[in-house]
C-alpha cells in the first residue's frame, strides 16, 4: 500500500513537470533568442495586463471597448522579429510548436512567399489559453504569442467592431 502511495505521488509530480514543460515551450523558445542581436524583442508582462484589468476605463468607443475586452483577459504578450535568415527561423519555430500542446488554427501562404501560421492552445471550449502567430517570408520572421484567457466570442466582437468601422468608412 505504501509503495502504491509513493508511486501515486511520483505520478502526480511527473504530471506536474510535464504540464510545466508544455507551458514553458514558448518561454524556452523566447528565452533562447532574448539576448540575440539578430532579433527585436518585445515583452509585455502579466503585471501590465493586471493593471489594465484593475483600471476601470469608461470606453464609449465600440472598437476600443472590444479591444479592452480582449486585453483584459490577456496575461502576456511576446514578440520576436528578425530580418536575418527568416525562413530558417520560421521552420525552426514551426518544428518547436507543431507539437501535441499546440494545434494549427490556420495557415496562409501568399504569392510573395510569405507564410502565416496560427497556432492555439486551448481546453476545448471557446476560451483559448494561447494564440501563437508565426510569419515567415523572404524579408522577415515574426513570432507573436498572446497568453491568457482569450475568449473567441470577444475576438468575434472585435472583428465585428472593426468590420463596422470599415463599413462606416466605406459609407463615407
Amino acid at each position: 500500500m505504501k509503495t502504491f502511495k509513493i508511486l501515486l505521488a511520483l505520478l502526480f509530480v511527473a504530471v506536474g513537470f510535464t504540464a510545466q514543460a508544455q507551458d514553458d515551450a514558448i518561454s524556452k523558445y523566447f528565452n533562447k533568442y532574448l539576448d540575440d542581436d539578430r532579433f527585436t524583442v518585445v515583452y509585455i508582462s502579466p503585471k501590465m495586463f493586471q493593471l489594465f484589468d484593475k483600471m476601470d476605463l469608461n470606453l464609449d468607443d465600440e472598437e476600443a471597448e472590444a479591444i479592452m475586452s480582449v486585453v483584459k483577459d490577456m496575461r502576456s504578450l511576446r514578440i520576436l522579429v528578425s530580418e536575418e535568415t527568416p525562413k530558417q527561423f520560421f521552420d525552426e519555430a514551426k518544428k518547436a510548436f507543431n507539437t501535441n500542446s499546440y494545434e494549427v488554427l490556420m495557415t496562409v501562404r501568399d504569392k510573395g512567399g510569405d507564410n502565416v501560421e496560427f497556432f492555439i492552445k486551448d481546453d476545448g471550449g471557446t476560451v483559448i489559453n494561447e494564440l501563437l502567430l508565426l510569419v515567415g517570408g523572404e524579408d522577415e520572421f515574426v513570432l507573436m504569442s498572446f497568453v491568457g484567457n482569450i475568449d473567441l466570442n470577444n475576438i468575434s466582437k472585435l472583428t465585428e467592431a472593426f468590420e463596422g468601422d470599415g463599413d462606416d468608412a466605406n459609407d463615407d
Binding site: V42, I44, M48
Partner: peptide, 18 residues
C-alpha cells in the same frame, strides 16, 4: 519591482518596472 514591459532592438534596450 515587477517588470511591465521590455523591448530590445538594434542593441537598444528599454525596461519599465514598477
Amino acid at each position: 519591482f515587477e517588470e511591465l514591459l521590455s523591448v530590445r532592438s538594434d542593441g537598444a534596450r528599454i525596461n519599465f518596472y514598477i
